[in-house]
Amino acid sequence: MFENPKYITRGVQGEIPDSLMLLMWQMIAAMQTSQKDYLQVFTLTKTPTGQHIVHTQEQPPYRYELDMHCKCAVDAKVYVIDDETHSTMLLDSEY
């Protein structure tokens, strides 16, 4: 999964910095799990020093948290959906 063409929605393009988009794609590729769910969820939270990222999936359960220093921090929830022909990154409000 997630080895196919990748797309982003207008919402993601307008609200999520390029560096965070790239990091989320990389986090999916680097997952240490037996199986990837078709739906990956990223909760992005601004912190006093930068960005807090929580990456989760439902089946099998997976959770990874990351804090990073950056000036481009945002508050958002981002979904990445794989439908076997392509993967799409979208804001939760676009789902």
Rank of each mutant, 00 (worst) to 15 (best):
Met1Thr: 04
Met1Lys: 09
Phe2Asn: 13
Glu3Gln: 09
Asn4Asp: 09
Pro5Leu: 02
Pro5Ile: 01
Lys6Gly: 08
Ile8Tyr: 01
Ile8Phe: 04
Ile8Lys: 03
Ile8Asp: 04
Thr9Leu: 08
Arg10Val: 04
Gly11Phe: 08
Gly11Thr: 01
Gly11Tyr: 03
Gly11Leu: 11
Val12Thr: 06
Gln13Trp: 02
Gly14Arg: 07
Gly14Thr: 01
Glu15Tyr: 10
Glu15Asp: 11
Ile16Ala: 02
Ile16Ser: 03
Pro17Asp: 13
Pro17Phe: 12
Pro17His: 15
Pro17Gly: 15
Pro17Ser: 14
Asp18Ser: 06
Ser19Glu: 14
Ser19Met: 09
Leu20Thr: 15
Leu20Trp: 02
Leu20Gln: 07
Leu20Val: 15
Met21Ala: 02
Met21Trp: 02
Met21Ile: 15
Leu22Gln: 13
Leu23Arg: 12
Leu23Gly: 05
Met24Trp: 04
Met27Asn: 07
Ile28His: 05
Ile28Ala: 02
Ala30Gln: 13
Ala30Glu: 11
Ala30Ile: 09
Met31Trp: 05
Met31Cys: 06
Gln32Cys: 07
Thr33Asp: 14
Ser34Asn: 12
Lys36Pro: 01
Lys36Met: 14
Lys36Leu: 14
Lys36Thr: 01
Asp37Leu: 06
Asp37Ser: 07
Asp37Trp: 06
Leu39Ser: 02
Leu39Thr: 07
Leu39Lys: 13
Leu39Ile: 08
Gln40Met: 04
Gln40His: 11
Val41Ile: 15
Phe42Met: 03
Phe42Gly: 08
Leu44Asp: 01
Leu44Cys: 02
Lys46Met: 07
Thr47Met: 00
Pro48Trp: 05
Pro48Val: 09
Thr49Asn: 07
Gly50Asn: 00
Gly50Ala: 03
Gln51Met: 05
His52Ala: 08
Val54Asp: 02
Val54Leu: 11
Val54Asn: 03
His55Met: 03
Thr56His: 11
Thr56Tyr: 10
Gln57Glu: 05
Glu58Cys: 05
Pro60Ser: 10
Pro61Arg: 05
Tyr62Ile: 03
Tyr62Cys: 01
Arg63Ser: 13
Tyr64Gln: 14
Tyr64Gly: 08
Glu65Tyr: 10
Glu65Phe: 10
Leu66Gly: 15
Asp67Ile: 03
Asp67Cys: 00
Asp67Pro: 00
Met68Pro: 00
His69Arg: 10
Cys70Pro: 13
Cys70Lys: 03
Lys71Ser: 15
Lys71Pro: 15
Cys72Asn: 13
Ala73Met: 08
Val74Glu: 12
Asp75Gln: 08
Asp75Trp: 04
Val78His: 01
Val78Ile: 07
Val78Asn: 03
Tyr79Gly: 10
Tyr79Asn: 11
Val80Thr: 11
Val80Gly: 02
Ile81Thr: 15
Ile81Arg: 13
Asp82Trp: 01
Asp82Met: 04
Asp82His: 06
Asp83Cys: 04
Glu84Asn: 13
Glu84Cys: 07
Glu84Ala: 08
Thr85Trp: 12
Thr85Val: 15
His86Val: 05
His86Ile: 04
Met89Ser: 01
Met89Asn: 01
Met89Gly: 05
Leu91Glu: 04
Leu91Pro: 00
Asp92Gln: 14
Ser93Met: 14
Glu94Phe: 08
Glu94Val: 06
Glu94Tyr: 04
Tyr95Pro: 03
Tyr95Ile: 00
